[in-house]
Design a protein around this nucleic acid. Structure first.
Lengths: 228, 228
DNA sequence: TCAGTAATGATAGTAAAACTATCATTTAAT
DNA sequence: ATTAAATGATAGTTTTACTATCATTACTGA
């Protein structure tokens, strides 16, 4: 099997489609590497240009600024994750099972069994952990939102919320629970690595522990009989 | 009653203690206003200097850079919140009641019944919502952590974790649950305002809705009999 | 094959951000 | 009254975050 799944992203994310050229693809690929290595704040188009032997000006022809490049990368991740969710829960009948699969996907690095991805998975997942909230925690959030740039995140969130409703149709906060576990999956990883006292992960495998924590939390919450 | 509670913050947060002078206090007070107004990325010491009729150089005598000022502000918030938690659960015997009080504190703007705070509460709370994660989501997190700059956050988290253990001593993830609800309280507010589709808050009072969501989540999670 | 156009490279330049340094002046403390 | 500390005034540096211009290469299609 060698079909190429390409994710079509909102055109407002870029000035010139980076998928359309070799340079564009290098910008994204090595952009991921460098944001991962330097952190978003220290990352600049100048440095990226040097790395891939092009100029700052050329990169600006693809992305308005580095924040847009981050948004592009994170949006790609959300979209790909939604695709993985749909793909992975397909054929499962049990809502319980579907939710477990989703939590598994959320807490582990993207897997690329189909060989779609030609960049560093691990770096991408770590960018998601450390930088993804910066994609929306900005003063431009409302403008970006009007441009539908967060649609992939909302779609992912909604997809998960629907599963929660399937499991328990009376639960009142399916979307909030969905966004909470998406975010929690990321920052529990961050805390596990940098501020472990904010977690209960002591040396064990962080991925598994976070997965168990979230599974317990989600099923307890969805199973709770009306009480509050 | 007119006792002044002053929170002693880690000296590594600043170069000169801003509490110790009029200029220092203005830096913090109007720093909060301006970060709120402009957002952290667009905020600069130059602009703050103009606002309070001093110079960039003078502000640099207090804080190494704007990130340290943010850390100072957020750290102050965590410390004050821990103080509020201790103060508010004092004399409560029921773990259930204590947890409810904590969730109430987490989801609402700081209250200042004792008249301690001489700056804009609302602006501070909104900074916490929009900017607090930037305090630790940086490449300096490990160095900052060695300098104990996150101790107030850890103390707050631990304080809440202890209550969870009091409620259910067999629960395996009290710290992760604590950090999760602290963060969730903030970004559910952010989402409610900017990306409401990521929540189930539709026009109702966001604070109350988030409070109910978190209460349900916490008690369901802590009440769940061993199962997973 | 040749003209045209799209993409990139090379270079230069600007405005603002993020500092650092110096020295004069005001203020407060002994 | 003398001294030290804090602030103000000013100036300067490096880096970031862009924008502009023009030359070169590469591919396109008539």
């Amino acid at each position: 099997m060698d079909l190429k799944i390409s994710i079509r992203l909102n055109e407002k994310l870029f000035l010139r489609d980076p998928e359309s050229s070799d340079l564009g693809q290098r910008i994204v690929k090595y952009g991921i590497e460098m944001i991962h290595k330097l952190g978003f704040e220290s990352f600049t188009f100048k440095k990226l240009g040097e790395e891939i032997h092009t100029t700052e000006a050329s990169i600006y022809r693809y992305f308005e600024n580095k924040h847009r490049l981050l948004l592009y990368i994170i949006t790609w991740y959300w979209s790909y994750l939604e695709y993985q969710v749909v793909f992975n829960i397909n054929n499962l009948t049990d809502a319980d099972e579907k939710i477990r699969r989703v939590i598994d996907l959320l807490t582990h690095e993207l897997d690329d069994s189909l060989g779609q991805i030609d960049f560093n998975h691990k770096a991408l997942y770590e960018i998601v952990i450390s930088e993804s909230s910066k994609a929306y925690l900005s003063k431009e959030v409302d403008n970006n939102n009007s441009d539908m740039l967060f649609k992939p995140y909302k779609d992912l969130c909604n997809r998960i919320a629907v599963l929660f409703q399937e499991f328990n149709s009376t639960y009142a906060y399916p979307h909030s629970l969905a966004s909470t576990i998406i975010e929690a999956a990321h920052f529990q990883h961050f805390f596990a690595r940098h501020l472990p006292r904010l977690t209960d992960i002591n040396g064990q495998l962080p991925d598994q522990t976070i997965q168990s924590f979230l599974e317990h939390l989600v099923f307890a919450t969805l199973s709770q009989k009306e009480r509050v």
